[in-house]
Design a protein around this nucleic acid. Sequence first.
DNA 1: TCAATATATGAATAAGTGTTCATATGATAC
DNA 2: GTATCATATGAACACTTATTCATATATTGA
Lengths: 116, 116
Amino acid sequence: MVRCDHEAQHAIAAERARANMPKEEEVERVAASFKAISEPSRLKILFALRHGEMCVGHIVEAVGSTQSAVSHQLRILKSYGVVSARRDGQNIAYSLADEHVVAVLELACAHLKCRL
Amino acid sequence: MVRCDHEAQHAIAAERARANMPKEEEVERVAASFKAISEPSRLKILFALRHGEMCVGHIVEAVGSTQSAVSHQLRILKSYGVVSARRDGQNIAYSLADEHVVAVLELACAHLKCRL
DNA sequence: TCAATATATGAATAAGTGTTCATATGATAC
DNA sequence: GTATCATATGAACACTTATTCATATATTGA
């Protein structure tokens, strides 16, 4: 039992919040999606892919990291469904999985008042 | 110099990506914002606050964690500007900082096809 | 088949971070 | 001022994770 000066209003909100809290499993799924794009190294890759499909070598050039590091991060991004890959001869071309990813990025930048 | 079967298209994208890559500092700022909401414990707090302002005790009830853990996470959320706090007598009432936060959450859930 | 190129991956190390426990701060009521 | 309640915070520990290095896999061309 919690007592606070706004017990009346807060208690209602708290009760509703508890009743509508998504399952642990679902919370973790959403959190994982954000985690996928919460690392500077991964975010740079996503920023790069906004300009179009690219193979790994070009991504490495665009973000200025190493081949190994980029490859590791691409695997993570792919496993979270944020990017998709297709083989193209000797190369593998990566692109953003869908428009939701772009929308989230742009919304975040709007919030932070930084231009993309 | 990278060679790939779509050199023509990819090289243009890569060049544009490199030219438009936000500063390291800016990338880190965006990444930090996502990191703020990429932890299940913090995400639950945000889900709870969607139902209205609440003081810490009520948040603890809503998310089912400990007072200390919630307080630590609230500090992080606040430092990233995701929630705002106001003292209210003996309590401190927290609420979502702005509508961008809500929008990002809803967009992510749309992407994941989970209802909020 | 062999060499060369592109990409992936396993292991190891280093850095970051969430929770817990104990304690401190700050506000209210007496 | 003192006791009590709400919240914050520091330290320690466990856990996760990003990068590096070395190496493996897979595709292409000769």
